[in-house]
Amino acid sequence: MPRLFKNAAGPVFVGAGILHFVIPKTYESIMPDYLPAHRELVYASGVAEAAGGAALLSKNPTVRKYGAWWLIATLVAVFPANLHMALNPERYKKIPQPLLWARLPLQLGFVRMVLRAAKG
């Protein structure tokens, strides 16, 4: 994986986490209906992403390793929202349907990026 992606993982996740607080309604709109407390879950996932991204920026390899596993758990936890979008394309008319499905395997790419970033 190019060094750029490896070095970008921390800042990307910190930025994504911050966006959960800047534009929470956007994230709430992709939450599956069966989940309670959408706003609270959006904020919790934002904190999780930002904290994991910050851990990847650490010079301490142990912190990076734990941060990577934290982010992988976060990616697994938010996967239902991505699946929800793919299964309900009528709710997301601004996004082409093939992109809704393409996001699902991209999560594996993020996992790989996070693991590489953890190695420093």
Score class of each variant (00 low, 15 high):
85 M>I: 03
34 Y>R: 15
28 E>M: 15
85 M>Q: 11
36 P>D: 14
32 P>E: 11
118 A>M: 05
51 A>C: 13
6 K>S: 13
114 V>R: 01
26 T>A: 14
95 I>A: 07
109 G>K: 06
24 P>Y: 02
23 I>R: 12
84 H>P: 08
66 Y>T: 07
30 I>F: 14
52 G>F: 09
47 V>K: 00
106 L>H: 06
33 D>K: 06
61 P>C: 02
110 F>A: 15
15 G>T: 12
90 E>P: 00
53 G>A: 04
97 Q>D: 11
78 V>R: 02
46 G>M: 06
37 A>P: 00
52 G>C: 10
22 V>C: 14
39 R>P: 01
69 W>T: 14
112 R>N: 09
55 A>S: 10
17 G>T: 05
108 L>C: 12
27 Y>S: 14
79 F>C: 11
87 L>Y: 07
31 M>H: 09
12 V>C: 09
13 F>K: 12
78 V>L: 04
31 M>D: 03
38 H>P: 00
32 P>K: 10
38 H>K: 15
5 F>T: 11
23 I>P: 08
67 G>T: 02
43 Y>P: 00
85 M>L: 08
1 M>C: 05
8 A>P: 09
4 L>C: 06
107 Q>Y: 06
49 E>M: 15
101 W>D: 06
33 D>G: 08
86 A>G: 08
76 V>C: 09
54 A>G: 11
97 Q>G: 05
44 A>T: 10
27 Y>P: 08
74 T>R: 02
87 L>G: 06
6 K>F: 00
95 I>L: 10
53 G>H: 03
59 K>L: 10
5 F>N: 04
67 G>E: 01
110 F>Q: 10
86 A>W: 07
120 G>F: 06
113 M>V: 13
68 A>S: 15
81 A>V: 08
74 T>A: 09
107 Q>L: 15
8 A>V: 07
42 V>I: 07
93 K>D: 13
10 G>W: 01
101 W>Q: 08
84 H>Q: 10
25 K>R: 15
44 A>E: 05
39 R>V: 05
83 L>P: 04
104 L>M: 09
119 K>P: 03
3 R>P: 00
103 R>E: 03
42 V>M: 03
119 K>W: 07
28 E>R: 06
83 L>I: 15
93 K>A: 15
38 H>L: 00
74 T>I: 01
7 N>M: 14
33 D>M: 01
94 K>A: 15
6 K>V: 15
114 V>E: 04
12 V>D: 02
94 K>M: 14
87 L>K: 10
50 A>H: 12
85 M>C: 09
82 N>M: 08
85 M>A: 12
40 E>I: 07
32 P>W: 11
20 H>I: 09
73 A>E: 01
111 V>H: 01
91 R>E: 01
52 G>S: 09
78 V>N: 02
84 H>D: 13
24 P>F: 04
17 G>H: 05
2 P>Q: 07
61 P>G: 07
87 L>M: 13
26 T>N: 04
